[in-house]
Design a protein around this nucleic acid. Structure first.
Length: 844
RNA sequence: GCGCGCGUAGCUCAGGUGGUCAGAGCACCGCCCUUACAAGGCGGCGGCCGCCGGUUCGAGUCCGGCCGCGCGCACCA
């Protein structure tokens, strides 16, 4: 496309074309054998079932900005890409599909179901990869991984086996969060608390021997069928006499010992707690402490079991509750409405049924300690600091991780049983009768190996040597424990090094009204639709600009700002490239003070941008670029040089500034900059792409404080005169005859004259108005082009403002306390300010 | 309940270590089709910086207490 044919940047036309060039260039697929230092990022693997949402888009923008910047710094950069098999999510999707076909997973059988799921994944699994491409993410698409591919499976087996041999993975009957929805145990981290309205029942249990009773409170009367004790607080004098005695469980007749345990809150309810180790996590702990029997009356299907007795067996939990309450009759002493929070499955949304179940667990304390140390000694840095504190707290209070899931889709647990024999390994030992554990591992077990399993571990590959540890892990805060902390533990355990040096925890993007973005609420905004509407550059810029250390509301204005920036850069480039002669070689060749100024400002924005990248301050990074392009480059520099003849020097400087600006902005808005780069001469190498060009370094020799001061004055003077013209109702096009009575404009009077539309050539005539500008005044000579009365009013306003400021400064300096106690330089600055204000007033 | 964070122009947000810090974008008003951009340019309106105290010569900026909101952790059956 000829650049001069359009006045607007058209992302929809340009971006797909640019993507093709990037992918064809091979720039995103680094050679691991190359000796250049490696720099890598591992993408949080999206679910194969997933589609790009705003969180992915933000995280993609963050990671891509980092990756592109480092690639342009000459590092051998790899962005590790892949998808997660996402056990529950994927299995649920496929089961839904089967249901719509009138069949089911059970009808198919395990092998066929898994084959079907693979086929489903082949067909629908890759959509998010294409969507990342559309965002402009420069991932290594040529070596995409999957958490169930062959190499990955080997890594998982290796880790399982080694942890088992170390005794850190073990099988136990333990209280788990049973999710009746997915028919599987789930980990503590997959449980969410929700507030519900329940009833609190007070139930009387008679003491053995008929000498009184003990009243307990419960929201789940049906679980009493599994009670094995009553507990009171050891210091509770009201109930001290009960400890050691025995109560009789109503309906069942079982004798329950009355024990003392500090867990019981004496001031809650009656101060007496029924203990049900089989169906309550806290009771389970108490039961283990006191070696109580563990009875289960609720099964994995959520129905009462035979152990509940003939009149309850087979009933659903709620029906059983009703029946129990009815059967208790007078023993129910009170029922009151009760609101409290209870656990629900994050996945299925069903209420968790705490059950004792035979599951695989991972002991975490031994693994957690090195992960804590890594943060404390600085090998791992977490940004922002508040997230680091969360990380530490969780690791300190870490609990065993239930890693088995009663699913089919995933890494089947590599353990084989034959009678009492147990064998851990890839395949069953020789001989008949071995059966493999039917469960699969928690999806997060395999995700925890992501940064090294994707690079070929446990083999010692060139990729592993080149790209491990990765540099930065960028993620949202909701998976800091679920994923990030576990990667650190596994990385340290199996590679001896942290899996990444920096963790950047980014904002969660909420809907514009502050609610959570979600499909079910209808509050979601599709990033792809935003990209279609405004361009990928605009969305990337907007997301980075709105990011923060806190959650943020989605801001369409910031996306619009990004779109405006892309367009501005497009038009600025059209202007520059239309002026620069063919064959110009870009170079800083300042011929005038404004050239020295823009070159100096360019060094400043380069340095600021580098610092903001280092600090993960993406919002300031984005706004800083916006401000430089809009304000300094377009509003001022291009206006300042507009009427100069573009000779070799100016041409070289213009092209230099443009190209460095494009390079600097490329990591944030890669498409428009890549497109314009080609028009601005392109780059080295066969592809000539900006994505593969070098990031310009800061050149301190081009910093020029004198030029900055001179142009600052010009900007101040022009702005002030424009404001005055507006107030004095000067005809917009008129060039007013005026005298510039001010210091500091030796080289720039002509610039002021042109941009403020003044004719400074006249020396005669009476001043009809005075305007204060930095360093002095502009005296405007009488003419018919403005209204003297309005001008006078404006002048009075200016004088009043000055007098007010003078009075404030005088008051401050007249304050003994200030002069005596404030630091000398602050006092001196105040005196200087006062003198300047007085001089300004004098001049008017 | 404990912990963390936030409440600054109509809206969304910036404002390390207290002294031009009262800002940006959008919205709004006025003027301008000035040959890069009218989805543009120029200028402007607009804020007891949540409330009440305190520390200080001086406080959006520090301390305490309220009020409102968000998040994290733990939950009392």
């Amino acid at each position: 496309m000829a650049l001069q044919d359009r006045t607007r940047f058209e992302p929809a036309e340009v971006e797909p074309r640019i993507i093709e060039r990037w992918l064809a260039s091979g720039l995103f697929h680094p050679d691991p054998e190359d000796p250049t230092p490696g720099w890598s990022v591992a993408i949080p693997p999206p679910n194969v079932t997933g589609a790009l949402h705003m969180g992915h888009a933000l995280n993609g923008s963050v990671q891509d900005a980092l990756v592109r910047r480092h690639r342009m710094q000459g590092e051998r950069t790899k962005w590790i890409l892949g998808t997660d098999h996402a056990g529950i999510a994927t299995q649920t999707q496929v089961e839904k599909l089967l249901a719509s076909e009138g069949t089911s997973r059970e009808a198919l059988g395990r092998e066929a179901f898994i084959a079907r799921t693979w086929a489903w994944r082949e067909r629908y699994g890759g959509t998010i990869i294409g969507q990342l491409e559309r965002l402009g993410a420069s991932c290594d698409y040529a070596s995409e991984r999957f958490t169930l591919d062959d190499g990955y499976v080997r890594a998982v087996l290796e880790v399982f086996t080694r942890l088992y041999d170390k005794g850190l993975i073990y099988r136990d009957n333990y209280m788990v969060n049973w999710d009746p929805g997915s028919h599987s145990a789930i980990s503590d981290l997959e449980v969410e608390e929700r507030e519900v309205d329940d009833h609190l029942y007070a139930i009387a249990y008679p003491l053995a021997g008929g000498s009184g009773e003990v009243v307990v409170a419960t929201v789940r009367p049906e679980t009493m069928l599994a009670d094995t004790a009553i507990a009171v607080h050891p210091d509770d004098e009201r109930h001290a006499h009960l400890v050691g005695r025995t109560a009789v469980l109503p309906l069942v007749g079982r004798e329950l010992p009355i024990i003392a345990d500090a867990y019981v809150k004496p001031d809650f309810g009656t101060g007496c707690l029924k203990i049900t180790p089989g169906h309550d996590p806290n009771d389970f702990e108490i039961g283990r402490r006191h070696e109580l029997p563990e009875i289960s009356v609720i099964g994995e299907d959520g129905r009462m079991t035979e152990a509940a007795g003939p009149s309850y067996a087979g009933l659903g939990v709620l029906d059983a509750r009703e029946r129990v309450v009815a059967d208790l009759g007078d023993a129910v002493r009170s029922v009151e409405a009760y609101r409290h929070t209870v656990p629900f499955s994050h996945r299925s949304g069903e209420r968790i049924e705490p059950l004792i179940s035979l599951q695989w667990f991972m002991a975490m304390h031994e693994l957690a300690r090195p992960a804590l140390d890594a943060v404390r000694d600085g090998r791992l840095r977490i940004h922002p600091a508040s997230e680091r504190r969360r990380y530490e707290r969780w690791l300190q209070e870490i609990r065993p991780w239930c890693i088995s899931r009663q699913l089919w889709w995933g890494h089947q647990i590599p353990v084989f049983y034959r009678g009492d024999e147990v064998h851990v390994g890839t395949r069953a030992p020789d001989g008949e009768g071995w059966t493999q554990d039917p469960d699969v591992l928690d999806t997060w077990f395999s995700s925890a190996l992501w940064p090294f399993a994707t690079l070929g571990w446990p083999q010692d590959t060139a990729e592993l040597r080149a790209f491990y540890p990765t540099a930065v892990l960028s993620t949202a805060r909701d998976i800091l424990f679920l994923w990030v902390a576990r990667m650190v533990m596994m990385g340290l355990e199996f590679t001896g090094d942290v899996p990444f040096r920096d963790v950047y925890v980014h904002s969660v993007i909420q809907a514009p009204d502050g609610r959570r973005m979600s499909k079910s609420l209808g509050t979601g905004i599709d990033p792809l639709e935003e990209i279609e509407r405004h361009g990928a550059d605009a969305v990337r810029f907007g997301l980075l600009a709105m990011s923060s250390t806190q959650d943020v509301k989605y801001s369409p204005e910031k996306v619009a700002q990004g779109q405006a920036l892309a367009n501005k850069l497009f038009n600025a480039s059209r202007f520059v490239l239309g002026k620069v002669p063919e064959g110009t070689r870009p170079a800083p060749r300042p011929a005038a003070v404004e050239d020295r100024w823009i070159l100096s400002r360019l060094q400043a924005i380069k340095a600021d941008t580098a610092a903001r990248f280092a600090a993960f301050d993406f919002s300031k990074l984005a706004f800083g670029l916006y401000d430089f392009v809009y304000r300094e480059l377009c509003d001022w520099y291009l206006e300042l040089i507009k009427h100069r003849e573009v000779d070799e020097d100016l041409g070289a400087t213009l092209l230099h500034v443009l190209r460095e600006t494009l390079a600097l902005a490329h990591p944030v808005i890669p498409f428009v900059t890549e497109e314009l780069w080609e028009h601005a001469g392109g780059g080295e190498g066969e592809h000539g792409l900006l994505a593969g060009a070098r990031m310009p370094a800061v050149d301190d020799a081009l910093r020029d404080p004198a030029a900055e001061a001179a142009i600052e004055a010009v900007i101040g003077a022009v702005t002030t005169v424009r404001g005055w013209r507006n107030d004095a109702q000067v005809k917009p096009g008129a060039f007013l005859r005026a005298r510039l009575n001010a210091a500091g404009y030796e080289q720039t009077a002509g610039l002021v004259a042109r941009l403020a539309r003044l004719d400074l050539s006249a020396n005669g005539g009476d001043p009809a108005a005075t305007v204060a500008v930095p360093g002095g005044t502009v005296e405007v000579l009488a003419s018919g082009d403005f209204d003297p009365a309005e001008a006078q009013q404006r002048l009075e306003q200016q004088r009043a403002d000055l007098r007010r400021e003078i009075a404030r400064a005088e008051g401050k300096l007249g304050n003994q306390g200030f002069v005596a106690k404030a630091p000398p330089d602050v006092v001196a600055a105040e005196r200087e300010k006062l003198a300047r204000l007085r001089a300004d007033l004098e001049a008017l």
